[in-house]
């Protein structure tokens, strides 16, 4: 969150820069199983974000001392391509931010994937951000859930993720990059919709208890639409493969 002096107006005539209302999502498109080699994969376009997620495994855990005798372990890589941003050429591979995102993403799937089915093995989740425009971790998790489901590995629920936060006095959903950079608070969340269990929660900026409660409700409210898009993507992939 840059506290730059040349902060742009993020709300003009009660609307956001891209014309959305405060509780409105960007357009989300998901394609399930675009990659041949992976056990499961998904491609997501969430606004201008373009992200690939792939699941490999279950396979033997390496190195062996990482293996758990009662369950599978999940390894996660999240990385942004050097050409994915609007600024200069990035460094390839995960930086510190990416390592933290991979950690909290892994924890989301440790909750919903039925790891006890595969003791001693590992499941790899790879998230590669090809183009970024704010909210990449949420879009990546939403795609990764579809990749897991497409892999056939049993899951308790199909989680989704979305960011919420505050722009001025308004609590708002799904920030673009420019909103993310200049908003007063940003809070990515991942939710398992069956019981609205919160699986990922990060926040920075400044929120009162009331604003925070409203933001969480907004993230839960957005879930139905996102879940529908995830399920449609899976349905379409099955129809394609059964032809």
């Amino acid at each position: 969150m840059a506290s730059s002096s040349n902060k742009p107006e993020l709300i003009v005539n009660g609307r956001r820069l891209d014309g959305r209302g405060f509780d409105e999502l960007r357009t989300i498109k998901i394609v399930a199983s675009p990659l041949k080699n992976a056990a499961g994969s998904a491609y997501i376009e969430w606004g201008n974000n373009k992200i690939l997620a792939a699941v490999y495994g279950p396979r033997e855990a390496t190195p062996r001392h990482f293996a758990e005798s009662t369950r599978a372990i999940i390894k996660c890589r999240y990385a942004m391509a050097p050409f994915s941003g609007l600024s200069e050429h990035g460094r390839s591979g995960p930086n510190r931010r990416a390592i933290e995102i991979a950690k909290v993403t892994k924890e989301v799937f440790e909750n919903v994937v039925m790891l006890n089915e595969y003791p001693g093995s590992q499941i790899d989740l790879f998230i590669e951000v090809l183009q970024s425009d704010g909210g990449t971790r949420a879009a990546g998790i939403t795609a990764a859930a579809v990749a897991f489901a497409a892999s056939g590995i049993p899951m308790r629920d199909l989680p989704y993720a979305v960011s919420v936060g505050r722009i001025g006095d308004e609590v708002a959903l799904d920030f673009t990059m420019i909103e993310d950079n200049y908003a007063d608070s940003d809070m990515p969340m991942a939710i398992a919709p069956r019981n609205n269990d919160v699986l990922l929660l990060q926040m920075d900026g400044k929120l009162t208890r009331e604003q925070l409660s409203k933001a969480v409700s907004m993230a839960i409210g957005a879930g139905k639409g996102i879940s529908e898009i995830q399920k449609n993507a899976l349905r379409e992939a099955y129809e394609r493969s059964s032809k």
Partner: peptide, 13 residues
Amino acid sequence: VRAMQKGGMGAFT
């Protein structure tokens, strides 16, 4: 509230 972080595989309501 200025910052939050959840960790671990469990869930909060």
